[in-house]
Computed example of a mutant assay.
Amino acid sequence: MAQQEVLTSHPFNNVTENIFSKIGANLHRRQNHPICIIKEAIYDFFNSQRPGTYAKFDELHPVVSAAANFDEMLVPAGHVSRSPNDTYYIDADTVLRCHTSAHQAATLRQGHPAFLITGDVYRRDSIDQSHYPVFHQMEGLRVLEPDEYGGDPAAGAAAAERELKELLEGLAQHLFGSGTECRWVDAYFPFTTPSFELEIFFNGQWLEVLGCGVVEQQILDKNGFEGRRAWAFGLGLERLAMVLFQIPDIRLFWAEDQRFLKQFRAGDLRTAFKPYSKYPACFKDVSFWLPETGFTENNLCEVVRGAAGDLVEAVELIDAFTHPKTGRTSNCFRISYRSMERSLNDEEINAIQAQVREELTAKLGAELR
């Protein structure tokens, strides 16, 4: 699908202009960008483990079928991630991928037994300094050869789990330093069993860095590797970069400000971000009676992002009140506006806030107070 077809008049389409503008930015392919630096560091590690083994893909378009994004990855029909509240739909059958796993089945069908897929992914989410509707993931997978586990399925699952944990602990030490303490936490993902999350102890606290597991057998059986066993992982590049480079606000990754971009160099994982002048925030509150149905905080955040773009820093519920007689509920949200590059003036923020108020009524059916 061509990029211009992402914005359509289809009634199911919920891709805003703000989100559309991010498609094709390809931060993960800009050589000196922190996202690309992390990607290349991970490539280097996997190349060192099994030279020439892993096919690498970082140009796959983010528009995918809902079937590839959900069905082929065994996401249940009623799973919350399928909701338009969480996922950007172009039409009822087409989405902006919400994970790089959306390409896993197709890549297996192409005959690749080991690969790393990197790309931008899209999710409707809250607004704060660590969440953004577009971020970058890397998907890794390797199918084991039968002679690596004697052809026995149970032994194959154990071998896949063992190799996976050894590799990812090695990756954590490659990125964060030798001696980095790791621990494994049981988790649930529809497409792996058993499933795990890897946590590392870094700067005095435990941090979750990725999810992984042994690939569900039916995914392999349906996509060209019947009877084989495999492992897979998925990690967020922003999460790693914010920790490694001490970047405090996820919006900075999208900045074109040279004071940010010139601080990083390809191959250097030890750069600590040096904050430059931080411009003051502007706070605006908005109170409204909730409509009887259909309101979610994600929908509110989309309205605010649509009006403010990257000028919005946070949206926080600061008060909720239910009228004792009518049973109606009122919410008050505080919106923090802050530019990473300049001071904001009252005139432009008032104009943005007026647009937010108008669209709360027009799009979400809220009654302003």
Rank of each mutant, 00 (worst) to 15 (best):
M1A: 14
A2R: 15
L7M: 11
T8E: 05
T8R: 05
T8W: 08
P11T: 03
V15N: 00
K22E: 09
K22W: 13
I23K: 06
N26R: 12
C36I: 04
F45H: 09
F46Q: 00
S48P: 08
P51Y: 00
V63C: 09
A66C: 10
A66M: 12
M73S: 03
P76R: 15
P76K: 03
G78Y: 07
H79W: 11
P84K: 10
P84N: 11
N85F: 09
Y89Q: 10
T94D: 05
R97F: 04
C98F: 14
A102G: 03
T107S: 11
G111H: 06
A114E: 09
A114I: 01
I117W: 00
Y122K: 00
R123L: 10
R124L: 14
H131M: 02
P133D: 04
F135M: 03
H136D: 07
L144K: 04
L144C: 06
E145W: 07
G150W: 07
D152M: 09
A154W: 15
A158C: 12
A158S: 12
A158T: 13
L164F: 03
K165Q: 13
L171T: 04
L175Y: 08
F176G: 01
T180E: 02
R183N: 11
W184N: 00
D186V: 14
A187K: 06
F189R: 06
P190R: 06
F191L: 12
F191M: 05
F201A: 08
F201D: 11
Q205M: 12
W206C: 07
W206H: 00
L207W: 15
E208Y: 13
G211Q: 01
G213L: 07
V214H: 02
Q217I: 14
Q217A: 13
K222Q: 15
E226Q: 13
R229I: 14
A230V: 10
G234S: 04
G234E: 02
L235T: 08
L237N: 06
L237A: 03
E238W: 04
E238I: 10
L240N: 01
Q246D: 14
L252Y: 08
L252D: 00
W254G: 07
E256D: 12
D257K: 05
F260M: 00
Q263I: 03
Q263Y: 01
F264M: 06
F264V: 07
R265W: 09
R265P: 09
G267S: 07
L269R: 06
R270A: 12
K274E: 15
S277I: 15
D285F: 05
D285T: 07
L290Y: 02
P291V: 01
T293L: 13
L300Y: 08
E302T: 11
V303C: 06
G306S: 12
G306R: 01
A314G: 10
L317F: 06
F321M: 09
H323D: 15
T326H: 04
R328E: 11
T329V: 12
T329S: 13
N331A: 06
F333S: 00
F333M: 06
E341M: 14
E341F: 07
S343N: 13
S343P: 11
S343H: 12
D346Y: 12
E348Q: 13
A351V: 13
R357H: 11
R357W: 03
E358N: 15
E358Y: 13
A366I: 02
L368F: 01
